[in-house]
């Protein structure tokens, strides 16, 4: 490992641990005043799993972003290549290597923290397996969403505004800023159906046992539906972009 990269990993780890501790401290203080139906340990686990895996949510393909920003994407769009498939697998590969590997040390730290502060064990072994399966499905879903976002940003002149907006939706409704479980109860049905909830929220709820094992198939069907929908949407969007480029002549 490059020294600089190692430094970045360590710095990131310290930063995430700090943010995690602060969040847990806030929720602990709030719980002390008004305990909720959901046990506090579920919330702390939620926080740490988000801290570990949030990198999956960030757009990974800076190269592609640069190509869009500089307009070099126009050349790609004119190529007779199945671009969507190419970029989808690229994003997937980057997320697998970049984010998952960096999640592991965070999980170790979270597991070592004292009770009430750290991460709890999964509800059961089957729950863990279900959570893992859902995490993988969630990953496919994120990649599909990222490609839709890219497809949309390609259409705007200044992508930064649109990107910030989409990013905010992503960070809010994936449970990164505030655990989705703490959103108002009346919102729960709606927000858990959104694509954003399929990425990390659904796997985490399976892990903590908030979604019973019997619900797992239903959860995964929703995940799958969104993945298919987003892939289809992304494909259409990219094809339309490609066509537009070719018509315009690059």
């Amino acid at each position: 490992m490059e020294t600089q990269y190692r430094g970045a990993v360590l710095g990131g780890l310290i930063c995430q641990t700090f943010f995690g501790l602060v969040l847990v401290a806030i929720y602990r203080a709030m719980y002390a005043g008004k305990p909720q139906d959901m046990p506090l340990s579920n919330i702390t686990t939620y926080v740490w799993l988000q801290q570990a895996f949030f990198r999956m949510l960030l757009s990974t393909d800076t190269d592609l972003l640069d190509r869009i920003r500089t307009g070099a994407i126009a050349y790609d769009l004119c190529r007779p290549l199945h671009l969507y498939g190419y970029y989808y697998s690229r994003v997937l590969a980057m997320k697998m290597t970049g984010s998952i590997l960096r999640a592991l040390p965070m999980l170790v730290i979270a597991a070592l923290l004292p009770a009430g502060w750290g991460m709890c064990l999964p509800a059961s072994v089957p729950a863990l397996l279900a959570a893992l399966a859902a995490l993988i499905l969630g990953m496919f879903c994120i990649c599909a969403l990222e490609n839709v976002t890219m497809g949309l940003t390609m259409r705007t002149l200044d992508p930064r505004g649109v990107q910030a907006l989409l990013n905010l939706l992503l960070m809010t409704f994936s449970g990164n800023i505030l655990p989705l479980t703490l959103f108002p109860d009346s919102w729960q049905r709606a927000i858990t159906l959104l694509p954003y909830a399929q990425m990390l929220d659904a796997p985490i709820r399976l892990y903590t046992g908030e979604y019973a094992l019997g619900q797992a198939p239903a959860v995964m069907i929703i995940q799958l539906c969104w993945t298919v929908l987003l892939v289809a949407g992304g494909c259409l969007l990219w094809r339309a972009n490609q066509k537009k480029m070719i018509v315009q002549g690059g």
């Binding site: 203080a29 005043g33 909720q36 809010t172 108002p184």
Partner: peptide, 12 residues
């Protein structure tokens, strides 16, 4: 996020 938290917990 703060508004939602206050909605649930009222106070700290």
């Amino acid at each position: 996020a703060v508004i939602l938290l206050i909605d649930r917990f009222d106070r700290v």
